[in-house]
Design a protein around this nucleic acid. Structure first.
Length: 522
DNA sequence: CATCACGTGA
């Protein structure tokens, strides 16, 4: 982990020359330049323009403008940094920070909090310590923005002691510092400490309440989260959306939809965030009718259809079984990103329309959007379900070769499934044996299912052995093994396994179909 | 002049 981070840091260093360095100094020495105030006005309009590009997500334009600006001040660099952060490019943020340092400018509180927020949850979070050291050196540790960002940073690297110390050393604390402390404790799973701090806070606002609730949701304490939600004095779109989405994440789709209905009755207007979560709920419980109703309320609400909400719509229609409407919504999107393409390809894959999935994949490649690891999970599972062995093998091979995406355990699971369904058990076993990562339950499960399909006792036991190593007793192991043994005529072993299942209280789950329950409306 | 809680895919 750490060595990978350092590798990235050194590659970042190699790229710093892409950021202009000397222009600031040369311009300052020209006497016939406009007066300082004129120059400041000039740079201000450039900065405004830069911020405009970044706010509307046109990072390319912003980058171009930044490079062409006659001079760049601290605000220009900070704006550029926030743009790189928004596009989730910690590598770029780091490079930009180095570029800025090379012009001799010194980071201020905006710089530090932006960089800190850019490294959370990435391998660049080793920089939290360095940034903290810098903060102390230039005495920025009394700045509330920096303090909050630092606390979150230490939560990210899992250090509750230093995080508390950062809080204690703040000169004066406001509501957001206290709130940051609560959510940092929540992030590392110290629920009781978070609760205690929340109770002793000098004042609370709607953000603090929402953060506490979100903390419980992140820690899968959905009931506690709901208690907090019910106790809140006032609620806004964000608190409603967070609770609804909490239900969706924990698969309580009916509760999510019910809460959405209450939200509408309470008079709070949903926004695109809310609709995305609600569509996720509809998709999760395969409720086409509800999804259609949500779709019409989106159209009536006048909420602009952003790329995220439209992708949720595509996914909803695909998961609820209406792939044709999913394609309509998809084709109507003026801009598409990886997620949009993944939604439509995944939709086709799920419905066994392997050829159409591959056609869309081809269209995606032609449109210039780079596929990611999710795309390949979808493509490979399309091939597996459609029995397109050669295609699957070809795409699996192209991942690392053409797209620099290292196959992960999910991709291996798809390939084992692909070989397994086709009866090529030997290929599947060889693939597992050559895996660079440990096989997980899904990989072994795919192999075991294949053994059930093709009645191979030998490979089945290999798969069962592998699964046992995970110390994860899964009922499928027993039911599948007992099926194979039964077919092979080893009834004693089959009966023995069934007895074992009874003792361990593992039961085969009944299969269900959503088709019957959702055809009623028509 | 520039941040600030909530969101999509397997």
């Amino acid at each position: 982990m750490r060595s990978r981070a350092f590798h990235s840091l050194t590659t970042a260093r190699r790229h710093i020359h892409t950021y202009p360095t000397a222009s600031l100094a040369t311009h300052l020495h020209k006497n016939d330049e406009p007066t300082v105030s004129k120059k400041n006005q000039n740079i201000r309009s450039f900065n405004k323009m830069l911020a405009l590009h970044i706010r509307s997500g046109r990072l390319q334009h912003a980058h171009k403008l930044f490079d062409e600006m006659p001079l760049r001040d601290l605000v220009s660099w900070n704006t550029m940094l926030s743009g790189l952060r928004k596009s989730k490019d910690p590598h770029g943020v780091y490079g930009c920070l180095l570029g800025m340092r090379r012009t001799g400018l010194s980071p201020n509180e905006y710089t530090i909090s932006t960089v800190l927020k850019a490294v959370f949850g990435t391998e660049f979070n080793v920089l939290v310590f360095q940034l903290h050291a810098f903060v102390i050196r230039v005495a920025l540790n009394s700045c509330l923005f920096v303090g909050s960002a630092l606390m979150r940073g230490y939560a990210d690297v899992g250090d509750p002691v230093v995080l508390r110390r950062v809080f204690d050393e703040l000169f004066e604390k406001d509501v957001s510092s206290w709130t940051a402390l609560v959510s940092s404790y929540m992030r590392i799973g110290w629920l009781h400490e978070a609760e205690r701090v929340f109770d002793t806070m000098p004042e609370k606002n709607i953000v603090s309440w929402t953060c506490l609730m979100n903390g419980y949701i992140d820690n899968k304490k959905i009931k506690k989260a709901r208690t907090v939600f019910d106790r809140m004095g006032e609620r806004n779109v964000i608190s409603w959306t967070a609770m609804i989405n909490g239900y969706v994440q924990n698969h309580y789709f009916a509760d999510a939809l019910q809460l959405f209905a209450w939200m509408l009755r309470s008079g709070t207007r949903p926004n695109d965030f809310t609709f995305s979560s609600v569509l996720g709920a509809c998709a999760g419980c395969c409720s086409l009718l509800t999804g259609q109703q949500v779709h019409s309320s989106i159209l009536k609400s006048g909420v602009p259809d952003g790329i995220v909400m439209s992708s949720s719509l595509v996914d909803m229609y695909a998961k609820c079984g209406d792939v044709d409407v999913a394609l309509c919504v998809f084709d109507a999107m003026p801009h598409k990103n990886v997620v949009s393409w993944n939604s439509i390809i995944g939709g086709y894959a799920r419905h066994g329309l392997a050829m159409r999935a591959l056609d869309e994949f081809e269209r995606m490649r032609k449109s210039g959007i780079k596929p990611d690891q999710v795309t390949f999970v979808n493509v490979l599972s399309a091939c597996a379900h459609g029995g397109l062995i050669e295609q699957g093998v070809k795409h699996f091979g192209s991942m690392a070769e053409s797209y620099e995406i290292q196959p992960e355990v999910e991709h291996y699971a798809c390939m084992v499934d692909l070989y397994g369904r086709a009866g090529k058990l030997e290929e599947a076993v060889n693939l597992i044996k050559g895996m660079p990562v440990e096989p997980d339950i899904v990989v072994w499960g795919a192999l075991l299912a294949a053994c059930g399909l093709h009645s191979s006792l030998e490979v089945g036991e290999f798969a069962a052995e592998g699964m046992k190593k995970l110390k994860n007793e899964h009922r499928v192991v027993y039911s599948m093994l007992s099926k194979i043994h039964g077919e092979k005529g080893s009834w004693t072993i089959a009966i023995e396994l069934r007895e074992m299942m009874k003792r361990k209280r593992v039961w085969k789950q009944n299969a269900g179909s959503w088709v019957e329950s959702h055809f009623a409306p028509f």
